[in-house]
Design a protein around this nucleic acid. Structure first.
Length: 272
DNA sequence: CACGAGACCTGTTCGC
DNA sequence: TGCGAACAGGTCTCGT
């Protein structure tokens, strides 16, 4: 799915197109896309509300409406776009909102994992999320403290949205490589210096992803080009950009994991 | 608490 | 060419 940079890119693109528009109609084409409330209540409450703000929290898109909040999670294959004028329903369209100004907000999701919530209490749904890695109050010391609160492998821990919000499989592999830390390193073995390096690496890869408008891979193209700048993700067998050693792939926590066996030492790098 | 397996889904690519 | 297996940006639940 879209990870933090892709969701941020979508939020930035949707914001100017959506803010101020009023919702006129609702077409729910796959019932399970709607997490809550019931389809009938969803339609009844949604129609007539005005979109006041579009933002992102973790990998959630958040549309602040007149009275409620519409939360959208794209999961693996979801995409949210605005179209103007006449529109022919496309394959995999799951939800279409008709808006003022001949506009439509279309949620397309091939794998049907994506979910939409209409709620007057979005914080209840977002409550368990960990800190935003790009927030100003998220510090290297915070990261170090959190790493030592648990005893888990680095890769699965970084993917855990209650630990840190927004990283997915791509950016986790990229950040670990940039930080030269092994995916299987126990979280409580990370030193303060390594935590600071990891903190910087996480923010760097996320910021680069945003700057490049996210990554576009497979059949979901959104205009981003970060996929052309991956250091390790999906580059099994290709040379490590740092040392030239072939990138290896293994499975960690049931996720394909790409790393450099030479740069990313499994144990803390001792200074001579 | 940590971890692995299975589920939820469809589509593309890989290997024989 | 064909066909099944493996794999895919995520998260949830259950069993150990």
């Amino acid at each position: 799915m879209p990870e933090l940079p892709e969701v941020e890119t979508i939020a930035r693109k949707l914001r100017p197109a959506l803010v101020g528009k009023r919702i006129l109609s609702v077409s729910l084409r796959w019932k399970r896309t709607l997490a809550e409330p019931s389809p009938a209540a969803f339609k009844k409450r949604l129609i007539g509300q005005r979109i006041q703000e579009v933002s992102r929290r973790a990998k959630f898109l958040r549309l602040q409406l007149s009275r409620d909040t519409l939360l959208v999670h794209l999961r693996m294959s979801g995409d949210l776009t605005v179209v103007r004028g006449s529109y022919r329903t496309a394959k995999h369209d799951r939800l279409i909102l008709g808006l003022t100004g001949e506009m439509r907000l279309v949620f397309n999701d091939a794998r049907k994992f994506g979910r939409v919530w209409l709620t007057d209490d979005p914080d209840a749904i977002l409550a368990a999320l960990g800190p935003e890695p790009l927030a100003e109050d998220f510090t290297p010391r915070d990261l170090y403290a959190r790493l030592h609160q648990r005893r888990r492998l680095l890769k699965p821990l970084l993917l855990d949205q209650t630990f840190l919000a927004g990283l997915g499989n791509i950016y986790t592999d990229e950040a670990l490589h940039l930080a030269r830390l092994h995916p299987l390193l126990p979280s409580d073995a990370v030193t303060p210096d390594q935590a600071a390096v990891l903190w910087q690496a996480i923010r760097e890869v996320l910021m680069e992803g945003i700057r490049r408008n996210g990554a576009s891979i497979d059949w979901v193209y959104r205009g981003g080009d970060f996929q052309n700048h991956f250091r390790v993700y999906g580059r099994t067998g290709e040379p490590c950009p740092v040392c030239g050693t072939p990138i290896e792939r293994m499975v960690v926590g049931q996720r394909g994991t790409h790393f450099c066996p030479k740069c990313q030492l499994p144990l803390p790098i001792e200074p001579l």
